[in-house]
Design a protein around this nucleic acid. Sequence first.
DNA 1: TATTGTTATACTCTATAACTATA
DNA 2: TATAGTTATAGAGTATAACAATA
Lengths: 166, 166
Amino acid sequence: MSDATAGLTPEELGAYFALVEVANLLQYAVDGHLRAEGDLSYLQFQILATLNDAPGGRLRMTDLADGLVHSRSGLTYQAGLLDKRGLITRSPSPDDERSVMVTVTDAGRALVGRVLPGHVADVRRLLLDPLADGDLATLNDVLGRVRRHMRATPPRSARPRARRKS
Amino acid sequence: MSDATAGLTPEELGAYFALVEVANLLQYAVDGHLRAEGDLSYLQFQILATLNDAPGGRLRMTDLADGLVHSRSGLTYQAGLLDKRGLITRSPSPDDERSVMVTVTDAGRALVGRVLPGHVADVRRLLLDPLADGDLATLNDVLGRVRRHMRATPPRSARPRARRKS
DNA sequence: TATTGTTATACTCTATAACTATA
DNA sequence: TATAGTTATAGAGTATAACAATA
């Protein structure tokens, strides 16, 4: 993509670009499917699926935000949309009156179940099929390591707002 | 992220999620830096960098669009912003009067040169540093294969509009 | 005082379709 | 007729800051 070569070897550059492009193409395709099948953005699907896996299908807003969204108002906005469609409900937490518990409804679970087969098929077709034996384990190993590294070195803007002044 | 497990093994799921998350965290961090340093979105940087590498620093709109953008109006919009800032110029192509040639200006090249060191540093710190010996070659091999596969099976919506009726 | 979440507001970006001009 | 690009318009999403309520 440029003299981005400046300071990066062609091999480093290639890995960087390939990673970004593969992830983008994958998300674009999957997002299109989710919208067509369930009128869901990728983010909305992630929210529903995360809740779907959580014990009791419920999570605090703050816990739900982790990793999914960059600003809290963004989550409030998306939750509002899902709430309006009856896919989740929100209620004050019994423990901490400041918190809001988000819960997937039956309709929400049903919708996740409905889009999942196609979603999985997309992922398999685009990402998994071209992998050779052993590639999967390698990707898990390498990307897992990178992910742990990145989580340990979060970009300033992704830090919980609690940390802003501390 | 859910019963997305349905149809995917934990290993497949892990690779999928790790890929998406790593790419997202990387792009988010890099995008933040580009905005802070050069008031550029990642897409704008890609456009400038692509032109910067092209022979003569110039490309047709159509050729520039390839892979960078999903709709043509999107490129027109972004090019308009870059043009307004004096980072590129647009002029009708001599060969084909329908085409528009986009050219990086000196200011555009200077800006790319200015943000590049920090950009490269980000990529190195977040993605490259945690890699072990051989990981780079592996990533290039595997992701390169996936990329070729994806390009050969483009999502319907990313297809050139020329193909819509054919 | 710090934390949780919402709201108001403004802005960026994207997409669709209609349109112009050239091939 | 098909292609290249622009524009109008409208909608989706995001971020910042101000806010209310609870800890």
